Amino acid sequence: MQVDGAAIRTRRKELGLSRNECATAAGISGPYLSQIETGARRKMRPPTYKRLRTALQIQRDDHRLLAPPPESQHRKDTDGSHRGAGRPHPE
Rank of each mutant, 00 (worst) to 15 (best):
P88D: 02
L56P: 02
R83M: 03
Y49Q: 00
K43I: 11
R19W: 07
G86T: 09
S29L: 03
P70A: 11
R53E: 05
A7V: 08
E37N: 08
I58P: 00
D62F: 10
R53M: 09
H89E: 03
Y32M: 11
Q59L: 13
R60H: 13
G86S: 10
G16S: 07
P90I: 00
R53C: 05
A85I: 14
A40F: 11
R42C: 06
R60F: 04
R41S: 14
Q2W: 03
L52M: 09
L17E: 06
S81A: 11
A25P: 00
I36P: 00
E21D: 14
G39V: 15
L56W: 12
S72Q: 12
L15R: 11
S72W: 09
L17N: 01
H63Y: 12
K76E: 15
R42E: 14
H63C: 10
P47V: 09
P70T: 10
E71F: 06
M1H: 01
E37R: 06
N20R: 12
P46F: 05
P70E: 10
H63G: 07
A7Q: 12
L17S: 01
K76W: 07
R11S: 02
D61T: 13
R19L: 15
C22V: 07
L33Q: 04
A25T: 02
T24R: 11
K43S: 15
H82R: 04
R19K: 15
Y32N: 03
K43T: 15
L17W: 03
L56K: 09
R11V: 04
P46N: 11
T48N: 05
T38L: 07
M44H: 01
K76M: 14
G16T: 12
E14F: 05
H82S: 05
E91D: 10
S29D: 05
R9L: 12
P88H: 06
L56M: 11
